[in-house]
Amino acid sequence: MRALFAFIAGGTFGTGLVVSGMTDTTKVQGWLDIFGDWDPTLAFVLGGAVVPMFFAWRYTDGRLPRLGGKFPAPPEPKLDHNLVLGSLIFGLGWGLAGLCPGPAIASLSYGGFGGGVFLIAMIAGMLAAPPARRWLDAVAGSS
């Protein structure tokens, strides 16, 4: 059952990514190009997604997930260098190619050779993150 609902959630997520335009790199780059011919559609995508989730979070109060377990605890409100630097690095890559992780996976079936190369490079980057984090922590700790 858990796998079935995960499949449905993944499918709905992917469909939303395609429909919204998040898998079209030229659109995404237009949405991020605030210094050029800026297109504000990204705010509509994010706004449209945040509204159902806002109500979902409120519904979790005093309840448990339908298939058992617990709802994820609120993360520690720790705003550290990894969060800030990591997000900046991610944003640079996102703007450069126009793909973030969800759309990179969702477009696998039609993204062609380049799409596959992006996904492999992204996975390589993910594998490089733990040593990068240790290095950043050491630099931050010694300063």
Binding site: F5, A9, T12, F13, L17, S20, T41, G48, L67
Partner: peptide, 27 residues
């Protein structure tokens, strides 16, 4: 584009809500 953005965004939000409320996981 704005309409499709809103509709697609809504689907993304519904997917995330489903994964949270049923599986108890963050999408």
């Amino acid at each position: 584009d704005w309409i499709w953005g809103l509709v697609g965004g809504g689907l993304i939000g519904i997917a995330a809500a489903l994964y949270l409320l049923v599986n108890g996981r963050i999408l």
